[in-house]
Structure formats: structure tokens, C-alpha cells
């Protein structure tokens, strides 16, 4: 399930709702992303981060990413919540939950989802610091993190 929203979410309540009434889930893995103030000594502090997105394409890309995770791992359920709008340091941006019978599929698929989301979901961050505003540039490290899932993880699971 995909939710793109401006309002905050309660990660604990989402996990409780995610597994409510289910007895076949042995493991839930979660990733919670927060607005981080990366300031180094002497540099301007982060005032806020504004997330812009492409309505329509965002939901479509996230649904495709979810479908890919379901194809690769035996997961029972999946939830992605991503916020947009103006957020302050410490605020929640993104929540990824995956549920499976066993922990390995839940943990791996959760890591896959956030890695792919970061390189495919059409969101852009604009930072407001004490010194002014700037668009955040994409990191090649994120591409490397996403590319590590191209090595046949699905085949390993499907063979098992």
C-alpha cells in the first residue's frame, strides 16, 4: 500500500494496524526516515526542508517499486508512506514497512524498497538554511545502494 501525504504519521500506530488481526506474519521490518540537520561546526544550520513531488507519477513509481518487492520476496504485506511539503529537522519523512513469515525476507525487502525509492520516486528536496535556500543534489552513493539489488537476489529467493 502506498500513501503520499502532507500530514505526519505515527509509526507505532502504523505497525500496529499493519499486523492487526494477522497470525501468519512472523516478522515486520521498518525503515523510518527523518529530516537531518547535517550541519558541521561553523556552517549554517538547517531551518527546514521542503519536499516537492510529481503527483500521479509518484504514486505510480511507488506502486511499481512495491510490485517489484513483492515479485522478489515472499512478503505478506508492504506499506510505504512518504510525506511532501515543508518539514523541520527531526520530522518524519518516510516510513517503509514490510511483513513476512520470516525476518530475512522482511529485512531485505525493506532495504530494497528504501534504496529503490531514493533513486526512482520523483521527490526533490529544497533546503532552507540560515544562509539561504538550495536544491539538494542527488548522491551517487544512493545509486550505488540501489544498484546492489541488481545482483540476482530475487533468483536466490525464487529458487529456494
Amino acid at each position: 500500500m502506498i500513501r503520499v501525504q502532507g500530514e505526519d504519521f505515527d509509526a507505532g500506530a502504523e505497525i500496529a494496524r499493519f499486523t492487526s488481526g494477522r497470525t501468519d506474519i512472523g516478522a515486520v521490518a521498518s525503515f523510518l526516515g527523518l529530516v537531518r540537520d547535517e550541519r558541521s561546526p561553523g556552517s549554517p544550520g538547517l531551518v527546514a526542508m521542503t519536499l516537492e513531488h510529481y503527483p500521479g507519477m509518484t504514486e505510480r513509481q511507488l506502486s511499481d517499486i512495491e510490485a517489484e518487492a513483492r515479485r522478489r520476496w515472499p512478503i505478506e504485506d508492504c506499506l510505504i508512506i512518504h510525506r511532501h511539503g515543508r518539514l523541520r529537522p527531526g520530522e518524519r519523512i518516510v516510513l517503509v514497512l514490510t511483513a513476512s513469515s520470516h525476518r530475512a525476507a522482511a529485512l531485505e525487502s525493506c532495504a530494497f524498497l528504501i534504496d529503490w525509492l531514493k533513486t526512482r520516486a520523483p521527490f526533490w528536496k529544497r533546503e532552507e538554511t540560515e544562509a539561504g535556500e538550495r536544491w539538494v543534489e542527488a548522491k551517487s552513493l544512493d545509486d550505488t545502494a540501489a544498484e546492489r539489488w541488481n545482483d540476482g537476489v530475487a533468483e536466490r529467493w525464487n529458487d529456494g
Binding site: 526516515g33 510529481y54 512518504h82 518516510v94 531514493k118 520523483p122 521527490f123 526533490w124 536544491w135 542527488a138
Partner: peptide, 10 residues
Amino acid sequence: VAFFPPVTGG
């Protein structure tokens, strides 16, 4: 048709 920079969500 949409044009945009490399994405920076998550």
C-alpha cells in the same frame, strides 16, 4: 512530458 533533476526523496 516532465523534466526534472535526479530525484532526492527518501
